[in-house]
């Protein structure tokens, strides 16, 4: 069915469920087209496995256009593979060479337990958002959208932080499995906007507390997260979050 001419060896992490141990399993693939996406290459593998009567590899994916943040493969030692600024679903086989061996593992972190094969549980991110990653405004309470002019550079900076897709590559690659880039992106987005001010110091404290509770590691500023983030979320956000956190703890009188 495929039309290309690449031959590959895959070493894929197979793990039955969260309780069992996993291991890398070798698969050979031939006639892979360089125009295929990495996930389409996995489709080919799965079709083969099904036809052979074996269990296909479970992996997370949905939009396949780099925006939902669901795909999550640790490819040859890097989250989302070797190319900068792309997600796994947007990685194409032309980034590899004929004859390559490709090792594929799930995200690994205590806070992201493996569910099966390459799929992990990232619900910790949802809980962090639920702890404070919002503006408390009920539906119907809003004033006219243009009543509050926001300088373009501020709006743009907030947008850049808001571009995070919640994929977790930052955690996956960080030697400490720290979630600081993800958390700081949300904290920053709202800290940069006037709408976020009333809850600014409350928010940063609750979100950091939740992040710690989930068992992510501590940031040591290695910068790996920024380098691997498919959306180019900047380390500046982490500094901004730290700043807000200290202001919240040392200056604000509100106990959270």
């Amino acid at each position: 069915m495929s039309t290309g001419n690449m031959n590959l060896t895959l070493q894929v992490w197979r793990q039955k469920n969260s309780k069992s141990a996993g291991k890398l399993v070798d698969y050979k693939l031939s006639d892979i087209s360089p125009d295929m996406s990495f996930l389409e290459m996995f489709d080919v593998l799965n079709e083969q496995l099904i036809n052979k009567g074996e269990e296909p590899v479970v992996f997370d994916h949905d939009c396949r256009e780099g925006i939902c943040g669901m795909c999550s493969m640790f490819i040859n030692g890097q989250p989302h593979g070797p190319k900068d600024l792309v997600t796994t679903c947007q990685l194409h086989m032309r980034s590899f060479n004929d004859g390559d061996t490709i090792v594929v593992e799930p995200w690994r972190a205590k806070a992201f337990p493996v569910i099966k094969d390459l799929a992990v549980d990232r619900s910790a991110f949802d809980r962090i958002i639920a702890s404070g990653g919002f503006v408390s405004v009920n539906t119907g309470n809003a004033q006219d959208a243009n009543a509050l002019p926001i300088p373009k550079i501020q709006a743009d900076a907030a947008f850049e932080a808001a571009a995070c897709i919640g994929c977790g590559a930052c955690v996956a690659t960080c030697k400490n499995a720290s979630a600081m880039l993800f958390v700081s992106a949300k904290v920053s987005q709202l800290a940069l906007l006037p709408q976020g001010q009333p809850e600014r110091y409350r928010r940063v404290q609750s979100m950091v507390a939740q992040m710690d509770e989930e068992g992510f590691g501590n940031c040591t500023n290695t910068g790996a997260c920024e380098a691997e983030c498919p959306k180019g979320i900047s380390l500046e956000n982490i500094a901004r979050m730290n700043r807000d956190y200290f202001s919240a703890k040392f200056i604000s009188e509100e106990e959270v």
Binding site: G77, K175, S178, A224
Partner: peptide, 30 residues
């Protein structure tokens, strides 16, 4: 404390990791 917590945050290590692609060795070896 930091180092031990950070180690605990990833109980199972990667079989194949390529940290040199995204960070400096000394930043990871503090």
């Amino acid at each position: 404390m930091l180092t031990s917590q950070n180690n605990a945050a990833r109980p199972e290590k990667y079989a194949y990791n390529k940290p040199q692609a995204n960070s400096k060795w000394y930043s990871r070896s503090m």
